[in-house]
C-alpha cells in the first residue's frame, strides 16, 4: 500500500534542522513518489516550509540527506548543492507562500528568465545574442514557444506583454507555477498554492496541478492548508507536527488517523467526530 516507496523521485532521509536550541525538524524521513502529487500538511509552525527551504538550498540541514533521483537515473544530494544548481541541475522548482514574481518584467519575460540556462548556453554567453546569430535565434524561438504554451495553459496569453505586477492575485499564483514549470523540473514544490484563492480559482489550480502531473510527468510536492485541495488531488499525504512526522499515507488513511485529528483539533476523543464534521474533514 505504499507505492511511493518503490520509485521515489525525492527521498528525505533523517532530516534534522536546528536553529540554535530550536529543533524545527527532527529526524524526518519520507518519500515523494514519482508522478505523484504529495501533500505536506500540518498545523502552523510544524516545520513544513523549513522542509522546503532545506530541499531548495535556502538552509543547509543540520543532519540528514535529501536524495533527488531523476528519470534518467542520475541522483543528486540536494543538501550539498548551491541553490541555483538545485534548479539548473537537479531539476527542482519551487514557489513561495508569498508571490515572488519579477513584477517589473512582462509575463513573457518572467517565463523566459526561467529558461535562462539553456538560452545562455545557446547564446554563447550572450555574444551571439547581441548579434542575433541563427543558433541563438532558434533557441530563443523555442523558449518563447514554451513560454507561450504555458501562458496559453493558464489562460494569460492575451496579457503576455503586460508587467507581471499588474495581474490579479489568482493569476499571479498561476503565473508562478507556469514559471516554475518553464525551468523543466522533475519535481515541483509548491508552498501553499491555494492560499487566498477563491473556490473557482482553487478548482482551476487543482486542474492545473493534475495536468502537470499527468501530461508533463512532473511530480508535485505541496504544502497546503486547504483540506479540500489536499484531499481532492493528492495521492499521498505526509503530516508533520512539531517537526516530526505523525502520519504518512493515502488521503483516506491520513484523514482517519487519530494522531492527525488530535494534532489538528486537539480535542478529547469523544468530541472528535463532532468537530470533524464542522471542519468538513
Amino acid at each position: 500500500m505504499t507505492p511511493w516507496n518503490d520509485n521515489p523521485v525525492l527521498k528525505v532521509e533523517h532530516l534534522t534542522m536546528r536553529f540554535g536550541g530550536l529543533v524545527a525538524i527532527n529526524d524526518l524521513s519520507f518519500n515523494v513518489g514519482r508522478g505523484d502529487i504529495t501533500a505536506l500538511i500540518g498545523p502552523n509552525g510544524a516545520g513544513k516550509t523549513t522542509v522546503f527551504n532545506c530541499i531548495t538550498g535556502f538552509y543547509k540541514p543540520t543532519e540528514g540527506r535529501l536524495v533527488m533521483k531523476q528519470k534518467k537515473g542520475d541522483s543528486f544530494l540536494l543538501e550539498r548543492m548551491p541553490d541555483f544548481k538545485i534548479s539548473a541541475r537537479a531539476k527542482v522548482a519551487r514557489t513561495f507562500q508569498n508571490i515572488r514574481l519579477f513584477g517589473g518584467m512582462t509575463l513573457l519575460e518572467n517565463l523566459m528568465v526561467a529558461q535562462h540556462n539553456p538560452l545562455m548556453l545557446a547564446s554563447g554567453m550572450s555574444v551571439a545574442g547581441i548579434f542575433g546569430l541563427a543558433g541563438y535565434r532558434q533557441a530563443e524561438t523555442e523558449a518563447i514557444d514554451r513560454a507561450k504554451y504555458w501562458l496559453n495553459r493558464i489562460g494569460l496569453i492575451a496579457r503576455a506583454d503586460d508587467p507581471a505586477a499588474d495581474l490579479p492575485y489568482g493569476d499571479q499564483r498561476r503565473l508562478e507555477i507556469a514559471r516554475a514549470m518553464c525551468t523543466g523540473p522533475e519535481i515541483l514544490c509548491l508552498d501553499e498554492p491555494a492560499a487566498g484563492l477563491n473556490p473557482k480559482e482553487s478548482a482551476e489550480l487543482n486542474a492545473l496541478l493534475r495536468f502537470i502531473r499527468d501530461e508533463h510527468d512532473t511530480s508535485v510536492l505541496l504544502i497546503e492548508h486547504d483540506m479540500s485541495v489536499v484531499m481532492e488531488i493528492s495521492d499521498h499525504v505526509v503530516v508533520l507536527d512539531y517537526g516530526e512526522k505523525i502520519s504518512d499515507g493515502t488521503p483516506e488513511e491520513v484523514r482517519n488517523d487519530p494522531a492527525v485529528i488530535a494534532a489538528y483539533l486537539g480535542v478529547a476523543d469523544e468530541e472528535v467526530e463532532v468537530v470533524e464534521e464542522e471542519v468538513g474533514l
Binding site: 531548495t56 541555483f84 544548481k85 534548479s87 526561467a114 535562462h116 514559471r179
Partner: peptide
C-alpha cells in the same frame, strides 16, 4: 533569491 531558484547563477 528567486532568480537563483530559477537556475540563474546570481
Amino acid at each position: 533569491k528567486m532568480a537563483s531558484l530559477l537556475g540563474v547563477n546570481v
